[in-house]
Amino acid sequence: MDESFKWRDKMTIEVWLTFLLAAIVLSVSPGAGAVNTMANTMKYGFKASLIANLGLQVGSAFNIVMVGLGLGALLAQSELAFSIIKWVGVAYLIFLGYQKFNEVSKLDLGELKAQKPEPFKLFTKSVIVNITNPKSIVFLVALLPQFMNTNESQINQIMLLGATMLVVDTVVMIGYSLLATRLAHLIKNERHVRIQNRIFGSMFMGAGSLLAVASHN
């Protein structure tokens, strides 16, 4: 029997730790989620960013469930399905970027931070950011089977590995939020706010552009 097959037939602590490392690398790599987290933190503060973080994880959980149900495999094989979701994601990220880039604040920093965020809007926007990224689903389709025991319950293993990814990403996004709070003191007037908006707007549009050139394979 192939040694790699034997290795996959055991969910040992070593296998789980290898998956944990892969999940950390995936989460730490800057993407639309990190941009979304930092932008919300710098605009509304750390506590509000936790709501957005929750939305990101709900979006990720949705993708994990899709993979568990086999829809992820269909997406990985279907050029049409991949393209539809990809272009929806591209359009949404570019829309967020355009909106942020052109956001004009007539408030000083103290007043800006005093704004009350709309929790539901923050939450739903973050959910959409993650579920409209087909590359994350394809990544899950490619990654999860490599760490699963073919002789045991697939659902239980999906739940374990999925929970691992969600916990890791939650911690990493909190780290990005804390980083954003450190940078917030650099924004001292309306001009700085405009610069910040344009930076994050450009980053959102950049994330959308990267998704646009993503291939199916």
Rank of each mutant, 00 (worst) to 15 (best):
M1A: 15
E3T: 14
F5E: 15
W7Y: 13
D9I: 01
D9R: 12
M11V: 12
T12I: 04
I13F: 14
V15A: 14
L17Y: 10
L20W: 13
A22G: 01
A22K: 06
A22T: 07
A23Q: 07
V25W: 03
L26P: 00
L26V: 10
L26T: 08
S27K: 05
V28L: 09
G31H: 00
G33V: 05
A34W: 05
V35N: 13
V35D: 12
M38D: 07
M38N: 05
N40P: 13
K43D: 09
Y44K: 01
G45T: 11
F46V: 06
K47W: 10
K47D: 05
K47M: 11
L50S: 07
L50Y: 05
I51N: 00
I51H: 03
L54H: 01
Q57T: 03
V58L: 12
V58T: 14
A61P: 01
N63E: 08
N63M: 15
M66C: 15
V67W: 09
V67K: 01
G68I: 00
G70R: 04
G70H: 08
G70V: 05
L71E: 07
L75G: 00
L75N: 03
E79I: 04
F82W: 13
I84Y: 02
K86V: 01
W87R: 04
Y92Q: 03
L96M: 14
L96Q: 03
L96N: 07
G97K: 06
Y98R: 00
Q99Y: 11
F101M: 09
N102T: 13
S105L: 09
K106E: 14
L109E: 11
L109R: 15
G110E: 14
E111W: 03
E111H: 13
L112Q: 14
K113C: 04
A114T: 05
L122R: 01
L122A: 02
F123I: 04
F123Q: 08
T124A: 11
V127H: 02
V127I: 15
I128N: 07
V129D: 02
V129A: 02
V129P: 06
I131H: 06
N133C: 05
P134M: 04
S136N: 13
V141G: 08
A142Y: 04
L143E: 10
L144N: 02
Q146S: 15
Q146P: 02
F147Y: 11
F147S: 01
T150I: 10
T150D: 09
N151C: 03
N156C: 06
Q157G: 00
I158G: 00
I158F: 11
I158E: 02
M159T: 08
L160I: 13
L161T: 00
G162D: 04
T164A: 03
L166F: 09
V171C: 12
I174R: 06
L178P: 09
R182A: 11
L183N: 04
A184C: 11
L186D: 06
I187S: 10
K188C: 00
K188G: 11
N189K: 07
Q196A: 05
Q196S: 10
R198I: 02
I199K: 01
I199S: 02
I199Q: 03
M203H: 04
M205N: 02
G206N: 01
A207M: 15
S209H: 01
L210Y: 09
L210Q: 06
L211R: 06
A212L: 06
H216P: 09
H216I: 08
N217A: 12
N217E: 11
